[in-house]
Amino acid sequence: MRRADRLFDVIQVLRTARRPVTAATLAAELEVTVRTIYRDVATLQARRVPIEGAPGLGYVLRKGFDLPPLMFSIDEVEAIAVGARMVKRLRDPELQRAAGRVLDKLTVVLPETLRTHMIDAPIFVSPGDAVAPRGIDPAHLRAAIRDRRKIRLTYVDEKGRRTRRTIWPLAMAYYVDVSLVGAWCELRRDLRNFRLERIAAARVLAARFEDDEGRLLEAWQALRHDHAAPRP
């Protein structure tokens, strides 16, 4: 968790608490050390957030403090609501939880007139038809893309044939009926798309790959935009 996010979460916990919250309680909830909470509280106090209390006694947020409201138009609020609901299509539990946290944070800092619209917006999104992957955790896949780590996987094609491959994951592509990872395949020595539900097993490797100046990603994007996406 980024420190800025954690500082926000400290304020949120104290805002909703009915009694002083100890550093140990905050540390357990945010999954950090007590010493980290002490530093975070000191930082917030230095930024004039009215937190009162002391180590061992607990902390309270003085009544009347509020974060500055975010200024969104109704259309912008609806765009956020639609986007968060569409994340449910992705069959990626960690992204779904992250979308929920985003909505929680926004509803707290939005003005009252927009807050209700965010929560109760009459907007519905179909669940989509993509099959949930079982052989790979999408969160691990996204992390491998960020860290440029190779993945060893067992892949089952449309005819049921299994192959073991090492891929260089470049990007994710989410569609209503399928989720893909675009990658360089060491076996085929070419760009390929892999449907997540056809990955029978996968392991993120310690080995990293290089994509000089993003050329492989650009090549994959060019194929996708030209409607000639690389084959699985």
Rank of each mutant, 00 (worst) to 15 (best):
106 L>Y: 01
82 V>S: 04
38 Y>G: 07
110 L>I: 08
134 R>P: 07
44 L>P: 00
68 P>S: 06
70 L>C: 05
113 T>K: 06
100 G>C: 04
222 A>E: 15
187 L>A: 13
14 L>R: 06
164 R>V: 15
115 R>D: 03
142 R>G: 08
205 L>G: 03
139 A>L: 15
33 T>Y: 03
142 R>Y: 07
201 A>Q: 12
52 E>P: 03
98 A>V: 06
57 L>I: 10
115 R>K: 11
166 T>I: 13
157 D>N: 15
102 V>R: 01
3 R>Y: 01
154 T>W: 11
229 A>Y: 10
164 R>L: 12
142 R>M: 12
108 V>Q: 04
124 F>T: 14
26 L>C: 04
164 R>K: 15
61 L>V: 01
191 L>C: 02
114 L>I: 01
145 I>R: 12
38 Y>M: 03
187 L>H: 14
18 R>V: 09
137 D>F: 07
199 I>F: 03
43 T>M: 10
90 L>M: 12
192 R>D: 00
15 R>N: 07
133 P>T: 10
11 I>H: 00
75 D>N: 12
18 R>W: 03
172 M>T: 02
162 R>M: 13
179 S>D: 09
37 I>V: 06
51 I>V: 03
30 L>H: 09
111 P>V: 01
99 A>Y: 00
122 P>G: 05
226 D>H: 15
192 R>E: 01
62 R>S: 09
33 T>D: 08
120 D>N: 13
190 D>M: 06
206 A>V: 10
50 P>M: 04
174 Y>D: 08
152 R>P: 02
67 L>E: 13
213 E>V: 13
128 G>N: 05
219 A>S: 12
81 A>G: 07
130 A>F: 07
165 R>Q: 09
228 A>Q: 15
71 M>D: 13
65 F>A: 00
208 R>M: 06
12 Q>G: 08
7 L>N: 09
9 D>A: 14
223 L>Y: 11
37 I>P: 08
83 G>N: 11
150 K>S: 05
84 A>S: 07
98 A>Y: 09
151 I>A: 05
6 R>A: 06
167 I>R: 04
187 L>C: 06
196 L>I: 12
202 A>Y: 11
41 V>Y: 00
19 R>T: 13
159 K>R: 15
228 A>D: 15
74 I>G: 04
88 K>V: 08
19 R>C: 04
80 I>K: 00
